[in-house]
């Protein structure tokens, strides 16, 4: 499955890119699985996800928890806690 992965704010800075298309292995089923798997792809990912509890996720532009299934989503985004308003 190919998923568009987007990064924002300091997660984007640490990963070193704003977005990428990722071929997700079949055994990566949930948002939490994906975070674990991405963390193994290099130092920049390990740094971005070093404290996975801090990094938030949105699946197809809806907030989700780590246990959410990736299902047939097209896009996932990772970002720090929001500071708008």
């Amino acid at each position: 499955m190919t998923l568009k992965v987007r990064y924002f704010a300091w997660v984007r800075e640490r990963v070193g890119k704003a977005e990428e298309d990722v071929a997700v292995p079949a055994d990566v089923k949930t948002v939490g699985d994906l975070v674990q798997w991405l963390s193994t792809r290099g130092e920049e990912y390990a740094h971005a996800f070093e404290n996975p509890k801090v990094v938030r996720a949105a699946l197809d532009k809806m907030h989700v928890q780590p246990e959410a299934a990736l299902g047939s989503a097209k896009e996932i985004a990772f970002f720090p806690p929001m500071t708008g308003g």
């Binding site: 924002f8 704010a9 300091w10 949105a58 907030h63 985004a77 970002f79 720090p80 806690p81 929001m82 500071t83 708008g84 308003g85």
Partner: peptide, 23 residues
């Protein structure tokens, strides 16, 4: 809700560099 849930991130620009605002 805008403060806590809307996907915006503030970066502070100072004379000596930039930092992300912590939630």
């Amino acid at each position: 809700y805008l403060k806590a849930r809307a996907p915006f991130w503030k970066q502070v620009e100072r004379r000596d560099g930039s930092t992300w605002v912590e939630a």
